[in-house]
Design a protein around this nucleic acid. Sequence first.
DNA 1: TTGTAGGCGTTATCAT
DNA 2: ATGATAACGCCTACAA
Lengths: 365, 365
Amino acid sequence: MTAAAASGDGARPRPARRPTMKDIARRAGVSESAVSFALNDRPGVSSDTRERVRRVAEELGWQANSAARALSGERSGCAGLVLARPAHTLGVESFFLQLVSGIQEALSARRVALLFQVVEDLDTELAVLRRWWAERRVDGVLVVDPRTEDPRPGLLASLGLPAVVIGGLEADRHHAETPLPVSNVWADDAGAMASVLDHLYSLGHRRIAHVAGMRGLAHTERRIVSLRAEAARRGLTEDEVRSVATDYSDAEGAEATRRILDGPARTRPTAIVYDNDVMAVAGASVAAGRGVSVPAELSVVAWDDSALCRVTHPRLTALVRDTPGFGRLAAQELLAALDGAPVRSVQGELPHLEPRESTGPPPGE
Amino acid sequence: MTAAAASGDGARPRPARRPTMKDIARRAGVSESAVSFALNDRPGVSSDTRERVRRVAEELGWQANSAARALSGERSGCAGLVLARPAHTLGVESFFLQLVSGIQEALSARRVALLFQVVEDLDTELAVLRRWWAERRVDGVLVVDPRTEDPRPGLLASLGLPAVVIGGLEADRHHAETPLPVSNVWADDAGAMASVLDHLYSLGHRRIAHVAGMRGLAHTERRIVSLRAEAARRGLTEDEVRSVATDYSDAEGAEATRRILDGPARTRPTAIVYDNDVMAVAGASVAAGRGVSVPAELSVVAWDDSALCRVTHPRLTALVRDTPGFGRLAAQELLAALDGAPVRSVQGELPHLEPRESTGPPPGE
DNA sequence: TTGTAGGCGTTATCAT
DNA sequence: ATGATAACGCCTACAA
């Protein structure tokens, strides 16, 4: 951060004055309340007046002052989203931005803005949520990266702040005695894992490793459990099919791969399932670096597709899901909650496996 | 989007009531204005009262209602950022999220929230900016992806909405007769391009291709111009060194690479500089697919480093910059502008080239 | 159908 | 040093 070349005259232009309802009322020759009624599509004003008021508002370029509107008991018109991730794991991840783009699509259709904050850890996130609530900054929030023991739903429920957890627990994990604290949209990780195992098993793979994400994240645990269940269903043992946890970074994905490939050849996995695209690419790269050919000697599957999976050689077989669609669904659920819909759990689209060149029969098959 | 398993009792818990200054005043036995003075560090209240008020506020967990504060002439406490990009180019890009994380670091230190919106195109972005202004939703905005003919600075200046353009024109492109409409933080693309060319030229490369980003973006044009200038300085002709524009996607990066490699071997470039990491990886992958060895037959440089460049084989030589730092700088500049600092242009850190295995001497050297 | 008055929670301007 | 009181712009009874 070096030189600072001054420029411009420093004299900030006088801000254009924003018109208020009073201006409209004066100009249209009616009272302020008539303006309010007209502009909010409420009964109690002649269609003639309504039309005139609307025209004047249009001419003046009037927009409701969000602060005034929020103050008088209305909504703030903002939804909140906090992303708690250490900076170094923010790296390459298409997932999040895609999710947000879907969220925005649904929110902006209803003119709801998104307040977005990146923080370092969960405690800070909780503090931000509390503050947003206390400041009345947001009408509701979207919660991402749910954990198995997650303090957020409880907090939000106790604050009475409408919320939707993205990727939380499946409905069937909840029983009557423990009602959902907040709404939830979820992906069928178990079903997805089954399709991955179907693919690998039918190719002939029997020893499969799963390079999972962060321990404690709900979907990580879910995938680990699902993998074990699917393996058991096919008569595979825990020696043959196992998961290792990482922090989702390329570095840990690579390291996990090294350790897996370092094992004795006889018991070494013939396929690896990675919990995100970055780790999958990193893993494939480690294999290439060691002369382990993909897919001849090792099959690779990425959970979540992205450009990444299609620009590598070979292109990676991936579990494709409609991430923007998932975000859209979550945002719609939040909007519904704001409109008073009951707390509920909604299922997103089932991901499907897109076979590419990185998976094939295991060696000797 | 399938089943919707209802759960929970639907009865939303009664929202906890947020304490107001009135509550504090009552409880501390003072007037509301005393509370306001005490809480805002203003003179006109005894240190004794101030202390008591503070304690009560703390006990009650009071936080200023942002709407009320904004309404009474204060700031809204929000900065805005609109990202205008077609959904399909949102893909894998570490740059943006990193930038945002830096921005947040600076903003949240001053308790300023970030209002974030993704839209499809520039016109929609202009509409959003106008609306935010009209609704008094934001105190200022950050502008990304500046263009050569950019309507945003002019609009913002005319609205009197403080703004900082991220990656706009260098100060020296501006002359006294055309003062900057809004503040600007910029990266020295010319200097960076010079270091890239130094590297490649000294390795012996004479035919160099530049797979650039989108036409019309300020930094794209700047890099194209810089490349030509740097080439000319070294006596290279426009036949030898040329740029092709893309939309930044892996698809167009790959396509551009194919066309480059399709040229006659004698005049084919021996090095390619890509304007982002995704295209660089895609390009390297195309080369690998054609049996063109990197770096023996083709050197590859990525503009912007990321995990991506380090997980490929070979790892990609990249132009590293402190993207979060750049975001931090921009946000600080915006905060300064909100405090009344004059419009100015600030330079960010000079990127540096990190040589890795994807660059080497050209064939026959 | 229309206008008037009061409130939302804060800040700021007056008196006291 | 303190306490009324009036803005800020919108919404909403209630009265005309």
